[in-house]
């Protein structure tokens, strides 16, 4: 299983590529993606050293355009991606069917990955997107292997990429969530330093927290994804780089265990030893990056 890590700067790319990532991905300020501008590269030239570094090591770089893109921005998005392709970028991560249709019409071919934000939960939805020219699918974070077999063993020959949900799980479907969140707005981040989906809510006389599956279940899910044939594990771009490095190192350990062929029971046991409280990721969303 290959590991894909999100990066916000050249230094972060250097770190992950030197420490076992097979691929990195990032955003550019000029390309719509689901991170704040400060978490993106400034432009294609800013990315050039990362492309050179990755390719010297035989590794890959992808660019995220994983939001819906305004029609007026389609031509410029195409020009930017074509320039990045010429510079050696290996592909783009998208979710917009209209943009994919535009690229197809313009005969622009690239290694396109369907973002988790496209909410592709079934094989018919995959068919809808696949005909637009995909090479890889990132499964929704809220889809579990018990429901994903037909997507992983898909008839389009697409690679599949999964999150290590045991370590990082979104409570609600990201692209459809309108609760205030530090991920989506600079303004809200002053008020909401944490995910609002992790807040305690008064519910009658009780305290309610939006439920998450238990860690044992999620470690088991990662094990099952590997054995179903998911080829890539994704460590998402995270504002706090120390937290992302921690996640990345834990994913590496877990992938090593899987590649050793440990049993499901042992994998869950070891997973819980690696991170006993994996879901407590909340307060780590404050921006801390490796600049450069």
């Amino acid at each position: 299983m290959k590991i894909t890590a999100g990066v916000k700067s050249r230094k972060e790319a250097e770190y992950f590529l030197a420490n076992g990532a097979d691929e990195v991905y990032c955003g550019l300020v000029s390309l719509r993606n689901n991170r704040l501008p400060r978490e993106n590269f400034s432009g294609p030239e800013d990315l050039r050293p990362v492309l050179e570094l990755a390719h010297r090591a035989g590794k890959k770089v992808f660019v995220a355009v994983n939001e819906l893109v305004r029609e007026a921005e389609h031509p410029e998005t195409l020009r930017t991606l074509a320039a990045l392709k010429d510079m050696g970028a290996d592909g783009a991560i998208l979710r917009d069917p209209a943009l994919l249709t535009y690229f197809k019409k313009k005969k622009f071919k690239f290694y396109f990955t369907l973002s988790t934000l496209a909410n592709c939960f079934n094989s018919k939805t995959l068919g809808f997107f696949a005909k637009l020219g995909l090479s890889r699918l990132v499964l929704p974070m809220q889809l579990m292997p018990e429901n994903a077999e037909r997507l992983i063993k898909n008839r389009y020959g697409l690679d599949t990429e999964v999150f290590c949900q045991a370590l990082y799980y979104g409570v609600n479907l990201d692209s459809l969530c309108t609760l205030p969140c530090p991920q989506t707005s600079e303004n809200f981040s002053k008020k909401f330093t944490d995910f609002t989906c992790l807040l305690p809510y008064a519910c009658g006389k009780d305290i309610f927290r939006m439920p998450m599956p238990p860690p044992e279940y999620m470690f088991g899910a990662f094990y099952d994804y590997y054995h179903l044939g998911a080829g890539h594990a994704k460590v998402a771009r995270w504002p706090n780089i120390l937290r992302e490095i921690d996640l990345f190192q834990k994913v590496r350990l877990l992938v090593k265990l899987l590649e050793k062929g440990v049993s499901r029971k042992l994998f869950i046991h070891e997973g819980l030893r690696i991170d006993a409280k994996p879901m407590q990721y909340g307060k780590s969303f404050t921006l801390k990056s490796l600049a450069g």
């Binding site: 939960f121 579990m144 969530c177 609760l179 439920p211």
Partner: peptide
């Protein structure tokens, strides 16, 4: 007004169909 949706049942704690 709709605000958010999960696939993990908040009442029964599972992903089953």
């Amino acid at each position: 007004v709709f605000r958010a949706v999960t696939t993990y049942c908040p009442f029964e704690n599972h992903f089953r169909a």
